[in-house]
Write a protein that binds this DNA or RNA. Structure first.
Length: 596
RNA sequence: GGUCUCGUAGUUCAAUGGAUAGAAUAGAAGUUUCCUAAACUUUAGAUCCAAGUUCGAUUCUUGGCGAGACCA
């Protein structure tokens, strides 16, 4: 059990014994003591002074006395300031913690709990390459999956590919018109970028045709936008696709193949993958029978024009259409169908959707409809809503060419890490392969950390003018500390020094204790990160740990410690810190090098 | 028009209703015969405005201003 929980527990016991009042452990607030005060952990007393009819000071004194005298293996002393009871934890507690964990390479990882969770993320469109927003999505999805695994869940990662619809047809039409049979191979271009370029070409031509119609036929802009021949062709193509026209299907398959090759390269570059990929072309008809079922159950109702709706006004939402008057489904219908489909296949009680916050309303509606239909999967639906990545000037807009391309950004990060590594010149003996792996680790580490260190719920600003930092609150800083520790451990091992369990006789120095206190928090942090679906908790934690260690490292010598005992103790500390930094970075989907 | 989210140092981010609002970066100053200076140390700098609830509000409530998203 974590120390704060232990403190809560002994505090409830103390209050029970002293005052015969039962207080829930969750009602007790235990914080780390602020550095300006004496002590390690603080119990905030204000919450129950009323209930216990005691002054904060008297309560603190009585409680402090009781806790210290009844838990000698936990507390050495206490002091009370205003309503805060500051407790000092005995050195032996920290030391025994360190002795039991320092060899544990998977410290913080919980055993399997037998529960299954599905997580859907990435959701690319096949008409465009991935951009910065997709990267945040992918990194979040991956990281949450890792964090849930670390909490013992069995995680199934899925991806729904939006591979049908008018946008794909736009790329297809433009390719037919302008490509002259060009392919990604013939132009030596990545497939997703190749197809994306034709999507851009479609829009250019569309704009040109609209202007032409306005100028020559005297149409209004709105009118021309509905009559532009290239748009009509795309619309016709969508109909042909839905009717299974073999030529259209063949072209669609061919262009999708190009795009998938491009996506695969990107996913490989960023170290992402899925256990199961769904294609919208195969799922878009799902959910139709559920509409009938909903009508039978009276959950849905039909209007005079025969369109089908659900009334969610009682739940504070609007009326929502689930089937158009022409009988075609809307987006949400297939989502309901897919949810059922996934549940039948995996029987997972929890299904997480990593989707941008622009779809908050959509997912509220989705969950509500599923609940009203009485679907077993309904309560487990959780929308992990994340904020958009914006530029200092606002949203990224493809029309204005301000979209930050994922491949470009990844390549740039790797290139910067190459430059910095060469400037520093510390790994000149590395082979080409080792160097290339190192650049990837550092560049991607920097990028992933940058995108995950912010609370997912909040929108974040990315300034393309300033490159992502490699100093301070960054991935490379953590990687650097890890490499330093590894360097020390390598030297010790080369000298034949082995780290054995010890009995500590000297008292802990503040710098030593600070790290142990920080390390002890790791399992709690992993738990919090999972409960709140928030990888930034991990990022902030490992940064603080690395910083605490860095400070310790610069003030105290490890290899040349004052005594053999201190040397071993500090090596144990260093080793557990390295394990923790490595695990923490893995939870963010990032690696740590042994040298850099 | 309706619903929702957000507003913290110059900038990018923290802070389950708790002590003197933390970091990073940019700024100023310093540290390398000693385990990797992608580092360390010191310094200056912020809660949009106005009420309310509370022993205590960046956090909760209401109103205003500003930014964004969604639903029509």
């Amino acid at each position: 059990m974590s120390l704060t929980n232990t403190i809560k527990q002994v505090t409830t016991i103390a209050i029970e014994e002293l005052y015969h009042v039962t207080i829930a452990e969750s009602a007790i607030l235990v914080n780390a003591t602020k550095p300006e005060f004496e002590g390690d952990y603080t119990v905030v007393l204000f919450a129950f002074v009323k209930q216990l009819k005691k002054s904060p000071d008297a309560l603190g004194q009585e409680l402090g006395n009781y806790l210290v005298s009844n838990n000698p293996s936990l507390f050495s002393s206490f002091n009370v300031i205003k309503g805060f009871l500051n407790l000092s934890v005995v050195d032996s507690y920290w030391i025994s913690f360190l002795q039991s964990e320092y060899t544990n390479a998977t410290y913080g990882i919980a055993p399997m709990n037998g529960e299954k969770v599905m997580i859907e993320y990435s959701s690319p469109n096949t008409n465009k390459p991935l951009h910065l927003g997709h990267l945040r999505n992918n990194f979040l999805g991956w990281s949450i999956a890792e964090i849930l695994k670390a909490n013992g869940y069995d995680v199934v990662k899925t991806c729904i590919v939006n591979d049908r619809g008018i946008h794909i047809c736009k790329s297809m039409i433009a390719w037919q018109l302008f490509a002259n049979g060009a392919t990604p191979e013939s132009t030596n271009q990545k497939g997703d970028h190749f197809v994306g370029d034709y999507y851009v070409k479609f829009n250019d031509e569309f704009k040109r045709q609209v202007e032409e119609l306005v100028a020559t036929k005297g149409m209004t802009k709105e009118g021309a936008e509905k009559k532009a021949p290239i748009l009509l062709a795309a619309q016709q193509m969508l109909l042909d696709w839905e009717n299974g026209n073999p030529e259209v299907i063949a072209l669609w398959e061919r262009m999708n193949t190009w795009v998938y090759a491009g996506f695969d390269a990107t996913y490989k570059a960023i170290g992402s993958n899925f256990d199961r990929t769904y294609f919208e072309s195969q799922t878009y008809l799902l959910g139709k029978d559920l509409v009938e079922e909903g009508l039978t159950k009276g959950v849905f109702y039909q209007k005079e024009d025969s369109s089908v709706w659900i009334d969610l006004t009682a739940d504070g939402l609007d009326e929502k259409i689930v089937r158009r008057k022409d009988g075609t489904s809307v987006y949400i219908t297939q989502d309901i169908g897919l949810a059922v489909n996934k549940y039948e296949q995996y029987h997972s009680n929890k299904s997480i959707y990593v989707v941008g916050d622009e779809q908050n309303y959509h997912f509220k509606v989705l969950k509500l409809i599923c609940q009203k239909l009485g679907l077993p999967s309904a309560d487990g639906i959780f929308h992990l809503s994340y904020g958009m990545v914006e530029l200092p000037t606002g949203k990224m807009k493809s029309r204005e060419g301000t979209v930050v391309d994922a491949d470009d950004l990844v390549a740039e990060m790797i290139n910067i890490s190459k430059q910095k590594t060469e400037e520093l010149g510390k790994v000149k003996d590395f082979t080409t392969d080792e160097l290339s792996a190192l650049y990837d680790t550092i560049g991607l580490g920097a990028l992933k950390f940058y995108l995950l260190r912010v609370d997912p719920k909040k929108k974040m600003i990315f300034n393309p003018e300033e490159s992502i930092e490699f100093q301070g609150f960054t991935g490379p800083f953590i990687q650097f500390i890890h490499a330093r520790i590894k360097s020390i451990l390598r030297k010790m091992s080369a000298e034949g020094f082995t780290i054995n369990p010890i009995t500590v006789t000297e008292s802990l120095l503040p710098q030593e204790k600070a790290i142990i206190v920080e390390l002890e928090l790791f399992p709690t942090v992993i738990n919090d990160a999972a409960n709140e679906y928030d990888p930034s908790k991990i990022a902030i934690y490992i940064y603080n740990l690395a910083k605490t260690f860095s400070s310790f490292y610069s003030e105290l010598s490890i290899a040349n410690a004052e005594s053999a005992e201190k040397k071993t103790l500090r090596l144990q500390l260093a080793q557990l810190t390295a394990h923790t930094l490595k695990t923490g970075m893995q939870l963010l989907g990032a690696g740590v090098p042994d040298r850099m």
